[in-house]
């Protein structure tokens, strides 16, 4: 596992300011969806036992149903873990010198990119929708002069505060930089 204070190719004097992940409400929504999916086999079993009990009582029907339901729960469990892994491993790190974007797009697709703070041109925070407004999470868009033109921090808590922090760090980085941009 990675230490929270360690950075890839750490610069001299560079320190971590923030690690950002998706807001906890995103994980809660996923969890509630999974709970509903987990209830489906139970509801199906109840409906079958009430309406077509001969299936459950038969020598072939019961083992087949058992295998199907158990397989469903195994696949659901591994699907939950996969969704968790893909969301939990999306981390945006702000340091005193740069922004590091670590995205797990799928289980075998990981992208790590970074942007020097002095290359930041524009920072925009967006909060759209009922739940983002109530639970105060949203997206932060960072326009850069680098190869990758736009970084997006998705569904992070307190987007306006984060945007302000990035702007302040950007001003400080440009002030300390010997180059003019």
């Amino acid at each position: 596992m990675i230490s929270k204070n360690s950075l890839p190719d750490q610069h001299v004097g560079e320190e971590v300011v923030l690690h950002l992940r998706r807001h906890w409400f995103i994980f809660l929504k996923i969890f509630l969806f999974v709970v509903i999916l987990a209830l489906i086999p139970m509801a199906l079993y109840y409906m079958i036992s009430q309406n077509i009990p001969t299936i459950i009582e038969s020598d072939i029907g019961y083992p087949l149903l058992l295998v199907l339901f158990l397989s469903y729960y195994l696949i659901l469990l591994v699907a939950i873990l996969t969704v968790w892994t893909e969301n939990y491993l999306d981390v945006w790190t702000i340091t005193t010198d740069r922004i590091i974007n670590r995205e797990q797009n799928s289980l075998f697709n990981r992208i790590v990119s970074e942007l020097e703070l002095k290359m930041v041109q524009d920072v925009t925070a967006e909060q759209k929708g009922f739940f983002p407004t109530v639970f105060y999470y949203g997206d932060v868009y960072i326009q850069s002069a680098g190869e990758k033109e736009r970084f997006v921090f998705e569904q992070i808590p307190q987007p306006y505060k984060i945007a302000k922090i990035i702007q302040q760090l950007d001003e400080k980085a440009k002030k300390n930089s010997p180059e003019r941009i």
Binding site: I2, K4, T82, T85, L107, R110
Partner: peptide
């Protein structure tokens, strides 16, 4: 197999939290 790959990713790329 799939669980193994998931846990491998969490251990390799996740924070020690």
């Amino acid at each position: 197999i799939y669980s193994f790959f998931n846990i491998y990713h969490l251990i390799r790329f996740g924070f020690a939290s």
